[in-house]
Structures are given as C-alpha cells and as structure tokens.
Design a protein around this nucleic acid. Sequence first.
DNA 1: GGAGAACGCGGATAACCCAT
DNA 2: ATGGGTTATCCGCGTTCTCC
Length: 216
Amino acid sequence: MTNQSRKATIYDIARLSGTSPSTVSAALSGAWKSRRISEQKVEFIRRIAAEQGYSTNMQARGLRQAKSGLVGMIIPVHDNRYFASMSQSFESFARDRDLVPVIASSMRDADEERRIVETLISYAVDCIFVAGATDPAAITDLCTAANMRHVFVDLPGPGAPSVISDNYHGARMLTQTLLQGVQPRKLPARDRIYFIGGVATDYATARRIEGFRDVL
DNA sequence: GGAGAACGCGGATAACCCAT
DNA sequence: ATGGGTTATCCGCGTTCTCC
C-alpha cells in the first residue's frame, strides 16, 4: 500500500505507474480500448493496482454517475419460506445486473418499515422493492418526496407499480381441481371443504378466500 | 451568531493537446 | 493514425471559511 492509513486511489496508481488518473481509470474500468490505450500499458496498470490492493471506491463512482449501484428490498420477515425464497431470487437477479442488494425485514411493523425506507433513501439506493408492505401509502409518500423509484411486490400499492401473484385465480383453480369428480350433495359439517391458512384481512388471503368461495 | 460561499472528497469523462 | 497526457468539469453533501 502507498499509505497504511489510506486506501489507494487512482491518483496513487497513476503516480506509481507513471501515467495519468484518466488513463488509470480507463484501464481499470474497461474503457481503455475506446481510449486507445495499449494492452501492455493496461496490464502494467492492473499489476500496480493489484500490488497496491486497489479497489474502486464505489461511493465516488456513484457520486460521479449519480447511481449508487445499490438496490433495496424490504420483506416482512426472513424466517418465512416464501419471503426467504423471494429475497434469495432478488439477490441473484441483482448480482446478475452488477448491483448490490440490500435486504432488510420490517417485522411487519409500519414504523420500522418507514425507518428502513428512510435509511435506504439516505444511502441513495437506485430503487426499492417492498414485499408485503404494511403501510404502502406511507412508503409511496416518502419515496415520492425523495424521487425514489419503488415497486410493491405481492401487494398493490398506490402511486407505484405492483407485481402481484394472481391469488384469486390460483385459489379458483385449486378449488376446482379438488372438487373434480365430487358429487354435489348435502355433507355433514366434518366432511365439507374448508379454507385454512393466512390472515383473512391480508390482501393475498382475502383474494384466495374470494376465489375459493366463488367456486363453491 | 447566522447565512452563504467555498472547498474537498474520488472517480468518470469529455475536450483538447502533443509526440511519434 | 496512434497512443497516450493534461485539464476542467461534474456529481452530493458535509465541513470549513468568510462576511455581515
């Protein structure tokens, strides 16, 4: 390292390699071909950078490009198979796009949810995905004020795009499948079909119950 | 003391320039 | 034409400085 107390920058690499900061930047960012920088020089700069333990300062890059490269996701809880799977997929999709995922849980607490949104905004994430929002209107208010792109997942929200499973038709199809071949007749209560699961007031559960009832 | 201006941070990039 | 270098500018925002 050039200085034990400070991380190497492109200016250090430029000085050590006898080149300019712009050449170092182009060499390390991959833009060297369009800058007509020789491959030999690029390799030399890369070697110096590696020796110095250089890594790009993403905050500085984000400052220049007005993008942080961070994408936020808020889920209600981590210890739920559905949301755990969702956050895993989110992380994978984000990394495929060279973005850094930041995933937090609100514990289904509206205040905590707002705090997380404020924190993500303060870190200038590029956009926020909110799964199973507790207070979608408050989130939209915060995001709109901060000009922050946001998407609701699994729950419709006002003033922002939503990606929602078709719970109604899913429940309909499931119920229809279960009822195939069953002769309609008067059954004792113990043999009737019941819907068990979820909180009836939750959006997704309410839609499933709706689909279930419409088939019956 | 308060308001406003200037500065600095690190990196990307464009425009321009120079030597071969 | 090639292979660079130099300089200025920009970004957001916290800190420091200057002035009234």
